[in-house]
Design a protein around this nucleic acid. Structure first.
Lengths: 121, 121
DNA sequence: CTATCATATGAATACACATTCATATGAACG
DNA sequence: CGTTCATATGAATGTGTATTCATATGATAG
């Protein structure tokens, strides 16, 4: 037997090490949440909650540069959170699927629960 | 009436502007997701899915510095995603509530749906 | 084909933040 | 108390990335 060092958890650690999802999965998951972790992108997603919008409408709404919006829309599209369709010169963006709404709603719930906590203080 | 400029959406933009959640809410929400948007924090959260763990167990499991883990645990705790309890010298961390699990699971679902897409290609 | 409108994109800049290193706190034990 | 173990924390560093600026693409109208 190996001499037990200070505070040995090798057994537990080994077990958990086998159970943890692969690094690829965890990294992908973190990358997904990273997309939601930016105020501009979050505001864009909320803008698209009700209806599709063209790029310049989003830019006006959020009072930001067309370029800034366009860059972020690319990030959102590359990660399949939004999709777009062309109509003449205009390109309309819309939410890609319902997961986007669900993920955001879950986050919202956590927040409101926190407010509950703050009231007590 | 104001002269309609090129591509006028002022009506739609005004309407949406009133409907959008306040900047504080959106910022808080983005900040929440930002927490999940880091591989180390995601791995820590997954480590705690099954059972509570002390800091050095997490550090061993993830093969990272105690300091790095401690810094991230602070972030997680400040945002109420984990909580801790003391037992002598040791401090055990655990998931604060079920929202954490739900949020992560929603993200996971979105990912697996994407894999579906990739298979078709 | 040229001008214009809508959008995309590359490079540069500026800022946020994860990790490291050194050190501090804090509990238990002799 | 002084030492040791477990954890926390402050400052410095390096990396990632959001925005800006300038410019490119791409569609439409004349």
């Amino acid at each position: 037997m190996s001499e037990a060092k200070k505070h040995d958890h090798s057994a537990l650690v080994d077990k958990l090490h086998r159970e943890l999802p692969g690094d690829k999965k965890l990294c992908d998951l973190a990358d997904l949440f990273k997309i939601f972790g930016d105020t501009t992108r979050m505001r864009i997603l909320f803008s698209l909650f009700e209806s599709e919008l063209c790029v310049c409408a989003i830019a006006e709404l959020l009072e930001m540069t067309q370029s800034a919006i366009s860059h972020q829309l690319k990030v959102l599209k590359d990660n399949r959170l939004v999709a777009n369709r062309r109509e003449g010169k205009t390109i309309f963006y819309f939410l890609a699927d319902d997961h986007v709404r669900k993920i955001i709603e879950q986050g919202y719930e956590h927040l409101t629960e926190d407010e509950h906590h703050e009231k007590i203080i």
